[in-house]
Amino acid sequence: MSKEEILNMEARFERYVAEENKVEPKDWMPEKYRKTLIRQISQHAHSEVVGMLPEANWISRAPSLRRKVALLAKVQDEAGHGLYLYSAAETLGADRQQLVEDLLSGKAKYSSIFNYPTPTWADMGAIGWLVDGAAIANQVMLCRTSYGPYARAMVKICKEESFHQRQGYEIMMALAAGTPAQKKMAQDALNRWWWPSLMMFGPTDDHSPNSAQSMKWRIKRKSNDELRQEFIDKTVPQAEFIGLSIPDPDLKWNAERGHYDFGEINWDEFYNVIAGNGKCNRERLAARNKAHDEGKWVREAANAYAEKQRVRQQKQTSAA
């Protein structure tokens, strides 16, 4: 194809998605659209899988059996969601093993929120309530993303995630209604997770260079700042309801805008954690590397056995 033809195709493609048409795996798509999607979907998948770790940290110590099974089921769902997303990326010609290796080598990114530690049980509440809440805001938007397999994975994920946030909020409710020690634990967790949760939506719109193109391609449907504001507006009353206070002195309702105004986000911290300086960056990657390395002989054995079985069956059929 000549350069002109490609430009023509790209223009047609942009019109096509602007008219709310979905793109399917074998359809023609601009190479940059494919690359952007593979990067975004695989980052999303990595985030689900790395995101298992801070919560898995509390499975053995959950305070009741009811909480233990709920947490186990939730962390398991995250493995499932990582899997759905890797599957979506594979429809674009990516190879899961390669994507995983990019994560393990540090080449690929994942949501930096999971580099924060979970020192107390209340962190299970705060993650479910705030981190999943923020994730859901993003994921609901992605249910309408232009790439079919991604959108379908998101629909499934959103359906399953609805219990996650309720699970987290219920933990916080129980703590906030508990003894002073429990309430302190809950407030401490809210203090630590509030700002990182706001950072999850990414840099402000004027510092988010790739956003415009993604919006044009209908991969993204709302801007970072829009989603962040939605999340804050929804979450503040939830905190008030259980008597916890948001750690932001500048937070106040702006009747004119119909939204909450909020304080300055510490973007230095955001970039610092992305750069690898969060409390748990090393542990997270080390844990994923360990699981992958120690699983190698298992994956190999299963393949070797499958191959032996195939040969045996072939012999049987040819003998018959």
Partner: peptide, 9 residues
């Protein structure tokens, strides 16, 4: 949980 040899397992 979170440390298995492959996601499916």
């Amino acid at each position: 949980c979170g440390h298995g040899p492959v996601l499916e397992q």
